[in-house]
Write a protein that binds this DNA or RNA. Structure first.
Lengths: 200, 200
DNA sequence: TTTTCTCCTTGACTATCGTCAAGAAAGTTT
DNA sequence: AAACTTTCTTGACGATAGTCAAGGAGAAAA
């Protein structure tokens, strides 16, 4: 998919992200270049369908991905992953159980995909990646703790205002139907919240 | 606080928990016995007050602890930690930032407390603890992901029914005021939900 | 340009929630 | 036992959310 000169450039955002935590050696970079894959996934396609087993670990180079839960035939959106985010269904990926949620691309995406086999091979071969995965996972945990806090401590309207502050870019790139799911309300309610807020 | 014979017994639940992930060596057990502390904390006391920096990592041997967020003078309960749970404000503990939430004992508790210094010393000295902390943190992350899912996919009444199934013991040990917070509703609403549910 | 499709809004109605206030019920203390 | 405290319930009312249905705005396709 990439010539010799292109792949390194394509993975640059991933290297930048990892280097900020712990400087990678040339050997580590080469291993990733050789064993991780840069893939293009079209808008609307699924990275993982709910109820299936997660086979890959992803890093978003370009694009937007939503996480959703299937509920009575519908797909309720729970979270979004944009540039420089890792995507994994940890429970399914690690335990090889059917995933409770799925991932769908909301835009044409460019991702780094790392298979289970390669993930474990890297962890086995390069001890530094223990620290990296730990760090990545810690950030994910903190993010989820804060997300739970918004449900416990804020009303739907306050969560919308909070969203405006924390992720103004999401409003530009993600439709209100999906944002409503993230806020835990129906699209109609979000529309009315926006109406109320606009009046002040 | 403990004679030579008592401390090992007191920490047995922690060793059991860790052994189930990766068998501890005698040296590792001895190090924990020498550097981790078994403490008794009275009902109502705080393990960590919101806005302060987390100094310790805890394991619950006996008792119940609630996690809360301060909101406009009130304390909104977000989660509970009972026997065989680890308690940590990861963000505050790791980054030494003021914690957004606090922890309060709801019963007289017996806990293992491990200080920051000892935590890092253990991680440095015994590589096995990388796996252990990673495993513990992964479980915590999965738990939070599933908790977010209950807010996205379920109504307050459905969350209450879900709570009955998943944690029937909580209803015996935790008052409805605190459980209401966990469900994201007021105590009055929880009371009415229980009334509705009882009629069927 | 017209048609079609997707996305967003609005209306009407019902159900549920939050709030404030009062009152039971249960458990403690004196 | 009586007084007190804590916990839980109930009532009344206004605000907000869910649901079903219809309609409008804009983008993409014909």
């Amino acid at each position: 998919m990439f010539g010799d000169m292109e792949a390194p450039q394509a993975m640059a955002p991933l290297f930048d992200y990892l280097n900020a935590i712990a400087e990678l050696s040339q050997e580590e970079r080469d291993y990733l270049l050789a064993h991780a894959e840069v893939i293009e996934v079209a808008k609307g396609e699924y990275l993982l369908e709910a109820e299936k087993c997660s086979k890959d670990f992803y890093f978003v180079i370009q694009g937007a991905v939503r996480m959703y839960y299937p509920v009575e035939g519908e797909e309720k959106t729970a979270f979004f992953y944009l540039e420089n985010s890792f995507i994994s269904s940890y429970e399914s990926f690690l335990k090889q159980t059917p995933a409770r949620h799925g991932f769908q691309c909301l835009e044409n995406c460019r991702l780094v995909a790392i298979s289970r086999a390669v993930t474990f091979e890297i962890l086995d071969r390069f001890p530094k990646f223990d620290l990296l995965t730990w760090s990545i996972q810690t950030e994910e945990l903190i993010m989820y703790q804060n997300l739970v806090a918004t449900f416990i401590t804020l009303s739907p309207e306050q969560r919308y205002l909070h969203l405006l502050q924390e992720h103004p870019d999401w409003l530009q790139r993600i439709n209100l139907h999906h944002l409503a799911g993230y806020l835990g309300v129906t699209p109609e309610t979000l529309s009315r919240i926006r109406h109320r807020v606009a009046l002040r």
